[in-house]
């Protein structure tokens, strides 16, 4: 598996009216091999942006991001190779609507890893069976419920055999009754030793699976600690207020 080190990363956005928005300010954060780190914080605090810098969907202005010691912001690093190793799951699933579930999963292994179709499909079917969706392989994503779509999205990322996984609020677009089926899959993944960095407000998941919880506000890491520490007695007032809000 892999180790993710985020060192002093800052990311600004320039708005249309020319003002600069500091979305992420000098954030450092380490996810050790096999660890699960959960980022929490109010909306707009830069959680997604931070997560997206890890696989290069956003390019940070300063700082460095090391994945297994390789600096992804180094000009000589092939960012595509990094992306092969780091899977990502989005809030809105982002499955490819024109492809069947199976083709969604096999696309990248075949195109990027140059796997044969047979091999890719066998693997996809195994993974689908693991998340209980083997019978949906030939359906289109739109025929699936939200929870099923998100499980397919997780499988799609896993099919690339990533060393680490990023999740950006994977359950927040789901109806309440579908959240559990997705969390169960994520929990299984966490227990299997996958390195995971995720943004989620499912405190039950954080308690059960997270090694560390990081609280972000206004682009900064305000506080971090074990789930027990963070939830039972947060040190900062902002974390207290936020947790009161959601617990």
């Amino acid at each position: 598996m892999a180790k993710i080190e985020i060192r002093n990363v800052s990311k600004d956005f320039e708005n249309n009216n020319g003002t600069i928005l500091h979305a992420v300010k000098n954030v450092s954060l380490t996810v050790n091999d096999g660890e699960v780190v959960v980022i929490i914080g109010p909306s707009g605090s830069g959680k997604s942006t931070l997560l997206r810098t890890v696989n290069g969907l956003e390019t940070a202005q300063s700082g460095s991001i090391l994945i297994d010691g390789i600096d992804i912001m180094d000009k000589d690093t092939d960012i595509r190779q990094v992306r092969e190793e780091v899977g990502m799951v989005f809030q809105s699933f982002n499955l490819f609507p024109h492809l069947s579930v199976l083709d969604n999963i096999t696309l990248a292994p075949m195109k990027v890893r140059k796997m044969s179709r047979n091999e890719a499909e066998d693997k996809a079917m195994d993974l689908l069976a693991m998340v209980g969706l083997a019978d949906k392989a030939h359906q289109k994503p739109t025929q699936l419920s939200g929870g099923q779509q998100q499980r397919v999205a997780i499988v799609r990322a896993l099919a690339m055999e990533p060393k680490a996984m990023l999740f950006d609020e994977p359950t927040s677009a789901l109806d309440p009754e579908m959240i559990k089926e997705v969390l169960d899959v994520m929990l299984k993944l966490a227990k299997s030793g996958m390195t995971m960095l995720l943004v989620t407000h499912e405190m039950g998941f954080a308690r059960a699976a997270a090694d560390k919880v990081v609280f972000m506000a206004d682009g900064e890491v305000v506080e971090s600690g074990t789930p027990e520490e963070m939830f039972a007695n947060p040190k900062t007032q902002r974390a207290k207020d936020f947790l009161n809000h959601i617990l």
């Binding site: 595509r80 992306r83 982002n94 499955l95 490819f96 696309l107 195109k111 990027v112």
Partner: peptide
Amino acid sequence: PKGQVEAATALGLSKSQTFFSV
């Protein structure tokens, strides 16, 4: 939707692979 390109990019597809397949 932008998410389509992002999902493909995150999976490691190149720009041209993303264009032609997605």
